[in-house]
Design a protein around this nucleic acid. Structure first.
Length: 216
DNA sequence: TCCATGATCGTCT
DNA sequence: GACGATCATGGAA
C-alpha cells in the first residue's frame, strides 16, 4: 500500500482557475471518499476538462438548467450526475463562480480501502480495473447524486475531500481528444492522463449510436 | 483478446 | 420522443 505523502487539502483557489489549467494539475492528486464503512483514497490518473459555454461537449453548452446548476456554483465543489440510465459520474467545479467549468474524474489508482472498493466492484478482475472509467470510479467510491454539490476543499467532516497528494510530473502528462464526445467538441484535446499508467481507461473513438429504426 | 451491441432512464427539445 | 462525458457481455478469431 502506497503511503500518501501530503494529506493537506487543496486550497479553494486551486479550483478558481480556468479548467484547462486545473485539469492537468489534478493528475496525481489524492481523492478521499469518507464512507460509512471507512475511507478510500484514490490517486487521480485520468481527467477531462469541460468548459461551459464554448464547449459542445459540456452539460452547460445550452445554458443553465436545474440539473447542471452546480456547475455554475462556487469552485471546489463536486458536480455529480446520472448518465446512461444506470451510472454516476463525478466532476470538480472550477471557477470563477458563474462560469460553468468542471473537470470530469475519469480514472484513478486505489491507494487505501482497496477491499471496500473491491466489494463494490465485484466484476473487476484486478485492482487496476477498480476505478478505470468514470462510472467505475463512482461505483468504487460509492458516489451518487446525494453527493452533488459537496465541498471537496473542506478540511474534515465531509464525504469527499481532495488532497494535495503528489502532483504528476508534467513530463509524464499526456493529452488528447476526449472520450465519447463527437462533433466539434471532439477537436478539443482536453483529456489528460498519466502516460503509461495501468489504471488509465482505454481510448475509444466516439461511435454514433446505432439507430433502432426498422427497414425503410 | 478484440469488437459490436444491449441495457436503462433522467433530462431536454 | 430521442439520446447521452458508459459498462458488461457474448461471439468471433
Amino acid at each position: 500500500m502506497t503511503d500518501v505523502p501530503d494529506r493537506t487539502p487543496l486550497p479553494r483557489d486551486f479550483f478558481d482557475r480556468p479548467v484547462l489549467d486545473v485539469a492537468p494539475d489534478l493528475l496525481g492528486r489524492t481523492l478521499v471518499r469518507h464512507g460509512p464503512d471507512g475511507p478510500i483514497a484514490l490517486r487521480l490518473t485520468e481527467v477531462e476538462a469541460y468548459d461551459g459555454e464554448r464547449d459542445p461537449g459540456s452539460h452547460a453548452y445550452r445554458g443553465r438548467t436545474a440539473r447542471n446548476a452546480t456547475m455554475y456554483g462556487p469552485p471546489g465543489h463536486a458536480y455529480v450526475y446520472f448518465i446512461y440510465g444506470m451510472w454516476f459520474s463525478i466532476n470538480l467545479v472550477c471557477g470563477p463562480e458563474g462560469r460553468a467549468g468542471a473537470v470530469l474524474l475519469r480514472a484513478g489508482e486505489v491507494l487505501t480501502g482497496t477491499q471496500l472498493a473491491a466489494d463494490r466492484r465485484p466484476k473487476a478482475r484486478n485492482t487496476n480495473e477498480l476505478a478505470k472509467g468514470p462510472a467505475r470510479l463512482a461505483t468504487a467510491l460509492d458516489i451518487d447524486r446525494s453527493l452533488d454539490g459537496v465541498d471537496v476543499c473542506a478540511p474534515a467532516d465531509t464525504p469527499i475531500t481532495i488532497l494535495h497528494g503528489t502532483p504528476a510530473p508534467l513530463a509524464r502528462v499526456r493529452n488528447g481528444p476526449r472520450t465519447g464526445v463527437g462533433g466539434d467538441g471532439a477537436d478539443h484535446p482536453w483529456r489528460y492522463w498519466i502516460d503509461g499508467d495501468p489504471t488509465v481507461s482505454p481510448y475509444r473513438r466516439h461511435t454514433p449510436r446505432r439507430r433502432t429504426t426498422t427497414a425503410t
